[in-house]
Deep mutational scan, measured.
Amino acid sequence: GATAVSEWTEYKTADGKTYYYNNRTLESTFEKPQELK
């Protein structure tokens, strides 16, 4: 079976905060997504 690849990509803001962006739902969040835990 195919492994589900996380759609979340980790980015940093200009002031160094980490956030996560989902390229399928176009959602962004500062909290670590469930799929990455």
Score class of each variant (00 low, 15 high):
Ser6Met: 10
Leu36Gly: 06
Gln34Phe: 11
Glu27His: 05
Ser6Pro: 12
Ala4Tyr: 07
Val5Lys: 06
Tyr20Met: 01
Lys37Tyr: 14
Leu36Val: 06
Asn22Gln: 00
Asn23Thr: 10
Phe30Arg: 03
Ala14Gln: 10
Thr3Ala: 14
Thr13Trp: 03
Lys37Gln: 15
Asp15Ile: 03
Trp8Thr: 00
Thr29His: 04
Lys37Ala: 14
Glu10Gln: 09
Thr13Glu: 03
Thr29Glu: 02
Thr9Arg: 10
Asn23Pro: 06
Lys37Phe: 13
Thr3Cys: 04
Leu26Ile: 02
Ala2Trp: 13
Gly16Pro: 00
Asn22Phe: 00
Pro33Tyr: 02
Tyr20Ile: 00
Ala4Lys: 05
Glu27Leu: 07
Ala2Lys: 05
Glu35Ser: 10
Leu26Ala: 14
Asp15Arg: 02
Thr25Val: 02
Glu31Tyr: 06
Glu27Val: 10
Ala2Phe: 13
Gly1Tyr: 12
Gln34Arg: 08
Leu36Trp: 09
Tyr21Ala: 03
Tyr21His: 09
Ala2Asp: 13
Asn22Val: 01
Tyr21Gly: 02
Glu31Arg: 05
Tyr11Gly: 07
Asn23Gln: 08
Glu10Asn: 02
Lys12Ile: 12
Asn23Ala: 08
Thr29Pro: 00
Arg24Gly: 09
Glu31Trp: 06
Gln34Glu: 15
Thr3Gln: 14
Tyr19Asn: 02
Glu35Asn: 09
Val5Thr: 13
Thr13Gly: 08
Leu26Gly: 15
Ser28Val: 15
Thr13His: 04
Ala2Gly: 12
Lys37Trp: 14
Tyr21Lys: 07
Gln34Val: 13
Thr18Met: 06
Asp15Thr: 07
Leu26Tyr: 14
Phe30Ile: 06
Glu10Arg: 03
Tyr11Cys: 05
Thr3Glu: 13
Pro33His: 02
Ala2Tyr: 11
Thr3Tyr: 05
Ala14Asp: 10
Lys17Asp: 08
Leu26Thr: 11
Ser6Gln: 11
Thr25Phe: 03
Val5Trp: 12
Lys12Glu: 07
Ala2Pro: 12
Thr3Phe: 09
Thr29Asp: 02
Ser6Ala: 11
Glu31Ala: 07
Thr13Ile: 02
Thr9Tyr: 09
Lys37Arg: 12
Ala14Arg: 08
Phe30Tyr: 09
Tyr21Leu: 10
Pro33Ile: 01
Asp15Leu: 05
Glu7Cys: 06
Pro33Phe: 02
Ser28Ala: 11
Phe30Val: 07
Arg24Ser: 14
Thr18Trp: 05
Asp15His: 05
Leu36Tyr: 12
Asp15Trp: 05
Thr9Trp: 07
Ala4Gln: 13
Glu35Trp: 05
Ala2Val: 12
Thr29Lys: 05
Tyr21Trp: 10
Val5Leu: 14
Gly16Asp: 04
Glu7Tyr: 07
Thr29Gly: 03
Lys32Pro: 06
Tyr20Phe: 06
Tyr20Pro: 01
Thr25Leu: 03
Leu36Glu: 06
Thr25Arg: 01
Ala4Asp: 12
Thr29Phe: 05
Gln34Asp: 15
Lys37Ile: 15
Leu26Arg: 09
Thr13Lys: 03
Asn23Arg: 06
Tyr11Asn: 05
Tyr21Pro: 01
Gln34Gly: 10
Val5Asn: 12
Trp8Gly: 00
Lys17Val: 11
Thr13Val: 03
Pro33Leu: 02
Asn22Met: 00
Thr13Ala: 07
Asn22Ile: 00
Leu36Ser: 05
Glu35Leu: 06
Lys17His: 07
Arg24Asp: 10
Asn23Tyr: 09
Gly16His: 02
Leu36Asp: 08
Tyr19Leu: 09
Glu10Ala: 09
Gly16Glu: 03
Glu35Met: 06
Glu31Asp: 11
Lys37Asn: 14
Lys12Arg: 11
Glu7Ser: 04
Glu7Trp: 07
Gln34Ala: 14
Ser6Asn: 11
Asn22Ala: 00
Phe30Gly: 04
Asp15Glu: 10
Gly16Tyr: 01
Glu27Gly: 02
Thr9Pro: 00
Arg24Glu: 14
Tyr20Glu: 00
Thr9Asn: 08
Pro33Ser: 02
Phe30Pro: 05
Tyr21Thr: 09
Gly1Asp: 13
Glu31Phe: 08
Gly16Trp: 00
Ser28Asn: 05
Leu36Pro: 04
Thr9His: 09
Lys12Gln: 12
Gly1Ile: 14
Ala14Pro: 13
Lys12Met: 11
Phe30Lys: 04
Glu10His: 03
Tyr21Glu: 06
Gly1Met: 13
Ser6Phe: 08
Asn23Leu: 06
Gly16Met: 02
Gly1Phe: 14
Tyr21Arg: 06
Trp8Ala: 00
Phe30Glu: 08
Asn22Leu: 00
Ser6Asp: 11
Thr13Arg: 04
Glu7Thr: 05
Gln34Thr: 12
Ser28Pro: 02
Glu31Pro: 02
Thr29Val: 09
Glu7Arg: 03
Val5Tyr: 11
Glu10Met: 09
Trp8Ser: 00
Phe30Gln: 06
Asn23Phe: 08
Tyr11Thr: 05
Trp8Glu: 00
Leu36Arg: 02
Asn22Gly: 00
Thr18Lys: 07
Tyr11Asp: 03
Lys12Asp: 03
Gly1Val: 13
Gln34Ile: 12
Asn23Trp: 12
Ala4His: 14
Glu35Thr: 07
Ala4Leu: 13
Ala14Ser: 11
Glu31Lys: 07
Thr18His: 06
Glu7His: 07
Tyr19Ala: 09
Phe30Thr: 10
Tyr11Ala: 08
Lys17Arg: 15
Glu27Pro: 00
Glu10Leu: 06
Gln34Lys: 10
Thr25Gly: 01
Thr29Ala: 05
Ala2Thr: 13
Val5Cys: 04
Ser28Glu: 10
Glu27Phe: 04
Asp15Asn: 07
Val5Pro: 11
Glu7Ile: 07
Thr25Ser: 03
Glu7Leu: 06
Gly1Ala: 15
Glu31Leu: 10
Lys37Gly: 15
Tyr19Pro: 01
Lys32Gln: 06
Gly1His: 14
Arg24Lys: 15
Lys12His: 11
Ser6Val: 10
Glu35His: 08
Lys32Gly: 03
Leu26Phe: 15
Trp8Met: 01
Glu10Ile: 11
Arg24Asn: 14
Ala4Pro: 12
Thr13Asp: 12
Glu27Lys: 06
Tyr19Gln: 04
Lys17Met: 10
Tyr21Ile: 11
Asp15Tyr: 05
Gly16Gln: 03
Leu36Lys: 03
Tyr11Lys: 15
Ala14Thr: 09
Ser28Lys: 13
Lys12Val: 14
Ala4Met: 12
Tyr11Met: 15
Thr13Asn: 10
Ser28Phe: 15
Lys17Ser: 07
Tyr19Lys: 04
Glu27Trp: 03
Leu36Phe: 13
Thr18Val: 12
Thr13Phe: 03
Lys17Tyr: 09
Glu31His: 08
Tyr19Ile: 11
Tyr20Asp: 01
Gly1Arg: 01
Lys32Phe: 05
Asn23Ile: 09
Thr29Ile: 05
Lys17Asn: 08
Val5Gly: 13
Thr9Val: 14
Asp15Ser: 09
Thr3Pro: 12
Tyr21Ser: 04
Gln34Cys: 09
Lys17Gln: 10
Lys17Glu: 10
Thr9Glu: 11
Glu27Arg: 03
Glu35Tyr: 06
Glu7Asp: 14
Gly16Asn: 05
Arg24Ala: 14
Gly1Thr: 13
Lys12Leu: 12
Lys17Pro: 01
Tyr21Val: 15
Gly16Leu: 03
Tyr20Asn: 00
Tyr21Gln: 08
Val5Asp: 12
Lys32Tyr: 06
Val5Ser: 14
Phe30Ser: 08
Glu27Ala: 05
Asn22His: 01
Ser6Gly: 11
Ala4Asn: 13
Arg24Thr: 15
Tyr11Ser: 06
Ala14His: 11
Glu31Gly: 03
Gly16Phe: 02
Ala4Ile: 13
Asn23Glu: 12
Leu36Met: 09
Pro33Gln: 02
Thr9Ser: 13
Lys17Gly: 04
Asn22Asp: 02
Thr25Trp: 02
Lys37Val: 14
